[in-house]
């Protein structure tokens, strides 16, 4: 019985620990759960369970690869490489634009507040709409094909990278810039020898990471006709060729893994070399 006594004693000594949650907590919890249940009802979530047999049908068809030899491997691999090439081109173009924009958006390069505010809002605007929306717009403007996808990647990634670059530039050590200023360098010299050596490794590493994530994103751009493997995927989903859909997804997963590994290796090497 001593255990019970102990608990009573402890309870008396530390009332705060044993105090229950307040009424507000339970009210919020009940409200949140009620809202989620309402959403489930609204979106007819029960169908996930009643339609589960249909999902199993697809999964079974996906796992049946007996027609493997007859699939158009050449075209699929070509499209996969096209996707990777799109990601690379789009990101490289974005880097070319993002470097100057990043400098323009950095507080320690351009002290005017208004200018910086406008630059930052421009980056937000480019990033705010998803790549797929840009891709759809570019497909309408320039026609079907990888060029629309490349433009979409370039536009969105310019916004993303410009923001990251500006932040990297703002985070530099001022001593180096002051040293260069002290020996009489102008603005160009300060940027080239004071700022650039500090931010270049960061920029390259972020650009590599961007290629990685864009390769992922580019796989779906084809769904709206902007080139790459997505187009093949969407054709195969529309004709219910589920075995080939599964094959394409496996191809995507493999390629993304290869790019991830390569880019991670390069980034690590870069850090090792730079420091």
């Amino acid at each position: 019985m001593s255990a019970t006594l102990d608990i009573a004693a402890v309870r008396a000594r530390h009332p705060a620990v044993f105090r229950g949650k307040g009424a507000l907590y339970w009210l919020l919890l009940a409200g949140a759960s009620g809202y989620l249940l309402y959403l489930m009802w609204l979106f007819d979530f029960g169908r996930v369970f009643t339609d589960l047999p249909k999902v199993w049908v697809i999964v079974r068809l996906m796992l049946d690869w007996t027609g493997f030899a007859g699939w158009d491997h050449l075209e699929l691999w070509r499209s996969m490489l096209e996707t990777v090439a799109m990601a690379y081109l789009g990101t490289t173009i974005a880097v070319v634009f993002a470097v100057p924009l990043g400098f323009l958006g950095a507080r320690n390069v351009i002290p005017q507040r208004m200018f910086r505010f406008l630059a930052r809002r421009l980056f937000d605007g480019l990033r705010g709409l998803d790549q797929l929306i840009w891709a759809l717009v570019f497909v309408r403007a320039m026609g079907l094909g990888p060029i629309a996808g490349i433009m979409a990647i370039a536009v969105v990634e310019t916004g993303v990278l410009a923001k990251l670059f500006a932040e990297a530039i703002e985070a530099i050590d001022r001593g180096q810039v002051e040293g260069i200023t002290a020996v009489g360098a102008g603005l160009a010299g300060r940027l080239r020898f004071g700022v650039l050596p500090q931010v270049l490794p960061v920029m390259i590493s972020q650009a590599l990471y961007a290629i990685e994530s864009n390769a992922r994103e580019a796989t779906i751009l084809g769904l709206v006709g902007a080139g790459g493997i997505g187009l093949r995927l969407s054709e195969r989903i529309q004709i219910n060729a589920w075995d080939q859909v599964a094959y394409v997804i496996v191809l995507i997963l493999i390629s993304v893994t290869v790019i991830d590994t390569t880019s991670r290796y390069l980034r690590l090497r870069l850090i090792g070399v730079a420091r």
């Binding site: 490489l81 096209e82 990777v84 090439a85 799109m86 690379y88 081109l89 094909g145 990888p146 060029i147 490349i150 080139g227």
Partner: peptide, 9 residues
């Protein structure tokens, strides 16, 4: 360059 040729860019 290789990627640009591959995608007709």
């Amino acid at each position: 360059v290789v990627a640009a040729i591959w995608t007709d860019f």
